[in-house]
């Protein structure tokens, strides 16, 4: 294809995006659009499966049968989201094996929030309420993304996430109605998860390298800072309602702007965790790689069996 032809295709492509048309797997797309989508969608898929680990840590210790079943179902949903997102990413011409390889070698990233430890039962509440809450805000913005398979995945995933968020909040509501010890447990979980949840929206707009291009392609429809503000405004009243205190002494309602002013995020911590030096980065990767490597013989067996079966069929 000549340079001119490519230029022409690019103009048509940009026009389709401008008209809010969905781009589908077989449509022509600029290579950079494809690569950017592979990066973001797989990062999202990786986050789902790494996200299974901190909560998975409490499945065996959930305090009641009802809570155990709900937690199991939640973590299973995350696995389902991962599966769904890997499949959506595969439509861009890359395999799940390649994507996992990128995760395991550290080439691909996942959401940093999962590098924080889940050390008490109340963390199951805080993660559902805050982490899934932040994820929904990010993902609702993505339901209108230009790439069709991604946008459709988001619609479906958002429905389940909002159920998870309510479930998490309800865990904390129950704790806040309980003994002083339970209330302390809930407050402690909020203290630890509040700031990392705000960091989930990524660096400030000024520091975000991909924002401008992603906004243009409608892979992103709102900036990091806008989404973060939306999360704060939505979450603060929920905390107050059940007697939890947001661990930010600068937090106060700004009547003029009709939103909350809040304190400065510790960006050094953010970059430290992103660069692999958070509390659990190494453990998470170890657990993931171990699952993959320990499963190799199982996947090999399934493949070998399928081939044998196929051969037997053709020999008949």
């Amino acid at each position: 294809m000549s340079e001119e032809q490519i230029k022409e295709l690019e103009i048509q492509f940009e026009a389709r995006i401008a008209r809010d048309e969905k781009i589908e797997p077989k449509d022509w797309m600029p290579e950079k659009y494809r690569q950017t989508h592979i990066r973001q969608m797989s990062q999202h898929a990786h986050s789902e499966i790494i996200g299974m680990l901190p909560e998975g840590n409490w499945i065996t210790r959930a305090p009641t049968l009802r809570r155990k079943v709900a937690l199991l179902a939640k973590v299973q949903d995350e696995g389902g989201h991962g599966l769904y997102l890997y499949s959506a990413t595969e439509t861009l011409g890359i395999t799940r094996d390649e994507l996992l390889e990128q995760l395991h070698t550290g080439k691909a990233k996942y959401s940093s929030i999962f590098n924080y430890p889940a050390i008490s039962w109340a963390d199951m509440g805080a993660i559902g309420w805050l982490v899934d809450g932040a994820a929904i805000i990010n993902q609702i913005a993505l339901c209108g993304a230009s790439y069709g398979p991604y946008a459709r995945a988001m619609v479906r995933i958002c429905k389940e996430e909002s159920f998870h968020q309510r479930q998490g909040y309800e865990i904390l509501v129950t704790l806040m109605k309980g003994t002083q010890e339970q209330k302390n447990m809930a407050q402690d979980a909020l203290n630890r998860f509040w700031w990392p949840s705000l960091m989930m929206f990524g660096p400030t707009d000024a520091e975000s390298p991909h924002t401008a291009q992603s906004m243009k392609w409608k892979l992103k429809r709102k900036t990091n800072d806008d989404l973060r503000q939306q999360f704060i405004d939505q979450t603060v009243p929920q905390a107050e309602l059940i007697g939890l205190t947001i661990p930010d002494s600068d937090l106060k309602w700004n009547e003029e702007k009709q939103q909350y002013d809040s304190g400065e995020i510790n960006w050094d911590e953010f970059w430290q965790v992103v660069k692999g030096h958070g509390p659990c980065n190494k453990e998470r990767m170890k657990a993931r790689i171990a699952a993959h490597e320990n499963g190799q013989w199982v996947r090999d067996a399934a493949m070998a069996y399928a081939e044998k079966k196929e051969k037997r069929k053709t020999n008949k």
């Binding site: 299974m52 998975g56 199991l72 696995g79 199982v298």
Partner: peptide, 29 residues
């Protein structure tokens, strides 16, 4: 089976084993 959740040999088997675990807990209840 619940101990395995998130550590299965593939996503498909992980989800399936969790499913079985969920069924068994449901029956238990």
């Amino acid at each position: 089976l619940g101990e395995l959740c998130g550590h299965g040999p593939s996503l498909e088997t992980d989800i399936a084993c969790t499913n079985i675990s969920l069924d068994l807990f449901g029956q238990t209840r």
